[in-house]
Design a protein around this nucleic acid. Structure first.
Lengths: 204, 204
DNA sequence: TTAGTATTTAAACAAATGTTTTAATCATTT
DNA sequence: AAATGATTAAAACATTTGTTTAAATACTAA
């Protein structure tokens, strides 16, 4: 039960939700403590303050990214399309394992904390390089359209794959009765659209 | 010169930049006043408080949206592809006229202010409906792949067109020396990728 | 110049922020 | 049972927040 968990665990879980929803500056330590049914002092006691709690949350959120990146080492022998598919697959996995992940990314983008540079340098730029590498290879191999702007094409892929998770659950407000909709289905279709879009056309 | 502008104008311009960068809660009235070279009390004096200033900034930012939406009335007789192209064109226009526009949208998404519902209901949902309408028509006419999930395809388009502007100027940090890169060029390529991606394939 | 209005200024306000302190309570070990 | 350490609790702290006040200054019209 929730009441049996120790204060440290309760704080970490509650903070994950609240920080994701409102960003680091959008939540107060009193809100965090109250939501976790814990005294305010527990935050400093277990995490050395609000920033320490936020850092603990971030580290937990980024764990699957590190796992995914370690697999890219062996991607050299894969075709460009297979590499992009690998990215798409891992995007789906990460979003399933950490539904709030994108929220943290974009909270940091619009309101950077001291951890932003750390995270960014460490993970995001590596992902971006993986995509641009795959695109470059794909063009060289004649798989993708030769006139693609690599950087823009990479951002297009990141955009079409991640935007959905940024505006969720917001999008549900607009979309009329899409009962079957789920994240996995989205990523599959979005990736298919993108891949068909960058393919070298037959008359080229 | 900047010193000649009246306090009201200076505040509005400075607030536009700062609110876009840090969000509503990320900036204090003292920061706003100092950046505008204006006394703190001027904010309440001219805008009836911080929220009033923010509202004035938002209204100014959304002006081009209203203009674009008014043109969609006559879009019924256009083909589905032409309608989507119309969306893509207006996206480029809006981002050129209001480079910070997307920042405000996504600040509101991650940290909604009381104005969020107003904005959202009024503009964003209308845009979304326009896109889904075009997609539905395109499928019916045989222009687009029949197995598209309309809502997901609409979000894919919004994602591929707008993501670039969210992560800018962040992306510049990663991208190695792309000298020719500009927003207009991005939108053209992103839209082309998307359009090729949703087209009905020849063997269908 | 004078009178009246508009604007600017510095100071003060209550409320909220993150952190720390000190004591009380709990659990475990001797 | 007593003692030790871990955890919880309430209160106080110095800052910072947005707003308001009241006086000083600048501007405009008669």
């Amino acid at each position: 039960m929730d009441l049996e968990k120790d204060s440290q665990t309760k704080l970490l879980e509650t903070a994950t939700t609240l920080f994701a929803q409102k960003g680091f500056n959008g939540v107060s330590v009193r809100q965090l403590a109250e939501a976790a049914n814990v005294n305010i002092a527990a935050i400093s006691y277990y995490f050395r303050g609000k920033e320490g709690l936020y850092q603990a949350v971030l580290e937990e959120q980024f764990a699957p990214i590190a796992a995914a990146l370690s697999q890219t080492k062996t991607a050299n022998k894969l075709s460009a399309t297979e590499q992009l598919s690998m990215y798409a697959k891992h995007i789906a996995i990460i979003h399933r394992q950490r539904p709030l992940f994108t929220r943290f990314i974009f909270n940091e983008v619009s309101n950077p904390t001291p951890f932003f540079d750390l995270i960014f340098k460490k993970y995001i730029s590596k992902i971006f390089q993986f995509i641009t590498g795959a695109l470059t290879k794909g063009i060289a191999d004649g798989d993708f359209a030769a006139d693609l702007n690599i950087n823009h094409a990479a951002l297009s892929l990141a955009g079409i794959m991640n935007f959905y998770f940024i505006v969720n659950p917001l999008a549900k407000t607009i979309m009329p009765l899409d009962n079957t909709s789920d994240a996995e289905e989205y990523t599959v279709q979005a990736y298919r659209i993108y891949l068909d879009g960058i393919r070298r056309k037959k008359d080229e």
